[in-house]
Amino acid sequence: MNAKLNAVTPLPPASHTRIRENSLVAQILIHCFFVLACAACLIPLILVAIVSFSDEQSILANGYSFFPDKFSLDAYRYLLGDSQRLIHAYGISILVTVVGTLTSLLITSLLAYPLSRKDFPQRNLLAFFVFFTILFNGGLVPWYLVYTNLFHIKDTILALLVPNLLMSGFYILIMRTFFSNSIPGSIIESAQIDGAGEWRTFFRLVLPLSLPVLATIGLFTTLGYWNDWFNSLVFIYDNRLISLQYLMTKTLLSIQFLQSNTQNSNTGKLLSEMPTETVRMAMAIIGIGPIVMAYPFFQKYLVKGLTVGAVKG
């Protein structure tokens, strides 16, 4: 009777079974530690946010401050109204991130799936072909010359898309591991006995069963594309192809850059009329906004992906 009762009683969650014997003082100290640690993580962002909403004159008088004399939306009004460059850069970033992530997921999963198939004789050879790219890389110079001298992608949108397509060999191997562990070979076999071809099996059966790993790797790829400025730094000299991250890089080094293209538009203003210090910081806030707002929704996948990737690549 007793044993039967035990069998149906669900186990209490782990946090309750683990006996806590910390004293109240210890608990309070631990919470204090985390409040300080969180503050350290957030304060730089808060400072930048407050400066971006400050009045330019109070910055010029008192410097960047958590408590400005006067708040103002001038910086955002300038950026969203007068600077076509920012809107354009946003468009480039969104385009590159969407197209890049989808293409990358397609190529990655198409490469990973056959490597997971036990009846595919060359799978180990090909897995090594992927794996070796993790161990050794030729470095920046030959890589740069392949793309500029052989394929001439400098100053094209391809320069923002192509170099990141297979961001890391690890992603391919993680996906392969998922395919071989989570999709039973018998399902694939029975689908093929029913007459489904390889492509149909892959798109109709394997991919729908692999949404968790697609979401996790898609998330890392999205972040990689959205946050990328390095490829622009190396390949992009044409101002029409400047992405948001690269616009921010350029603006940090020289605020005038934001202006240089607006002169010929009818709303073009002189540098003296632009609230330069607050515009700089508003720019950073606009750049970071999408990630911070989406963070609560993708946080779960992020943590999962980080721990999977690190514990077993």
Binding site: L110, F120, L126, T133, P142, G169, I172
Partner: peptide, 26 residues
């Protein structure tokens, strides 16, 4: 395994260009 080979082709070509050509380029 023709279909499987076609599946891996884009990825392999990409690694060839993005990773292996630069290795020889050193």
């Amino acid at each position: 395994h023709r279909s499987l080979w076609i599946m891996v082709l884009p990825g392999l070509l990409y690694l060839l260009v993005n990773n292996y050509l630069p290795m020889f380029g050193t």
